[in-house]
């Protein structure tokens, strides 16, 4: 790891100024992702701004408008929170299947949303891939078992977060603090797909901006939510494919829903196609099957990851059937 200086700000308002705007400074929250990148020289910031020194950023509080979760709340805090377990089950379940218990004990919600991709070309210190300023995405012609089947190009990473699909499905908003003050936007608009002009980032944060909190709306009556994660090693792994489902139902009829896939695209991936099949309909095994097929109609797998198409199709069906059983 390269040398850096470590700064403990006392107040949140100091952070944008300390970060400057040259990508040479980074905030550190739990550090479980960032320190790994620094050890492998993927990132070598000159300064780390420690958010743990600022009191109050880890608060979880319910109010009339819903639930507000500070960006520094740990994944363990979220998993064990009774209000989240009851009314925002998809989030509690997603936070509970991130990495290992030791990592959930320090990993934060803000960090989980901002974690960098796991593509092995990106993570390899000696590979100068497109995301690190190189000329090409090696996954396209190389080993791409874990890469994207939706939304890829010019790079083909998948977004690694478990909490992101759950929060997007639950209609979360994110508050961002920058030099010009705070703004709050739908979390769905926070994540971005790679473009030729900007293949580097996975979200809209500017170098001097941070996430300060996540806000969840009050739950709607007769709504259930859940998160299912498929992984090679069920004890501790990133998602091959995951799904966050939020279903508003009456009996077996699906009045409204949100279906967000993880592990398949460079950002949390809303399956509009599957939602359209299910919305307003009585859910049966057959309809679930149709939703699954619709979900993968536009999938674009690469040489080693067509299995993700099958997983996605079956997972969408399973989510639909589960929601009404």
């Amino acid at each position: 790891m390269e040398k850096f200086s470590y700064i403990n700000p006392a107040r949140l308002e100091q952070v944008p100024g300390l970060l400057k705007d040259d990508w040479q400074s980074k905030v550190i929250a739990g550090g479980t992702d960032l320190l790994g990148e620094m050890k492998d020289y993927i990132e070598s910031p000159k300064r780390l701004i420690n958010l743990k020194s600022i009191p109050g950023l880890d608060q979880i509080s319910a109010d009339d408008g819903g639930l507000t979760i500070g960006a520094m709340a740990t994944l363990t805090d979220i998993t064990e929170h009774s209000e989240i377990q009851k009314n925002y089950t998809a989030l509690a379940e997603a936070a509970g299947v991130v990495a290992s218990p030791q990592i959930r004990n320090v990993g934060t919600l803000g960090g989980n949303l901002c974690q960098r991709p796991r593509c092995w070309y990106y993570r390899d210190p000696d590979t100068d891939c497109l995301k690190k300023g190189g000329n090409m995405c090696y996954a396209l012609s190389g080993l791409n078992k874990y890469n994207a089947i939706f939304g890829g190009g010019p790079n083909y990473i998948v977004h690694p977060s478990d909490t992101a699909p759950a929060l997007v499905a639950l209609g979360a908003e994110v508050t961002i603090l920058g030099a010009g003050g705070q703004r709050t936007i739908p979390l769905e608009n926070f994540f971005i797909l790679p473009t030729v002009a900007n293949p580097y980032r996975e979200n809209i944060l500017e170098p001097n901006e941070i996430i300060t909190q996540i806000h969840l709306p009050k739950p709607i009556a007769n709504t259930t939510s859940f998160y299912i994660k498929l992984r090679e090693r069920s004890s501790f792994d990133f998602a091959l494919v995951s799904i966050a489902g939020v279903f508003q139902t009456q009996g077996k009829k699906c009045q409204d829903l949100s279906l967000i896939l993880g592990g398949v695209a460079p950002a949390p991936w809303r399956s509009n196609e599957a939602e359209q099949v299910l919305r307003g309909q009585v859910i049966s095994d057959d309809l679930g099957e149709r939703a699954g097929k619709a979900a993968v109609k536009n999938a674009d797998p690469m040489s080693d990851n067509a299995y993700k198409v099958t997983l996605t199709q079956n997972l969408v069906k399973r989510a639909a059937v589960m929601a009404v059983s």
Binding site: Y6, N105, V106
Partner: peptide, 11 residues
Amino acid sequence: RPVNSCCMLGV
């Protein structure tokens, strides 16, 4: 709480 000491800075 149990944590990985390799993923924590001494400071």
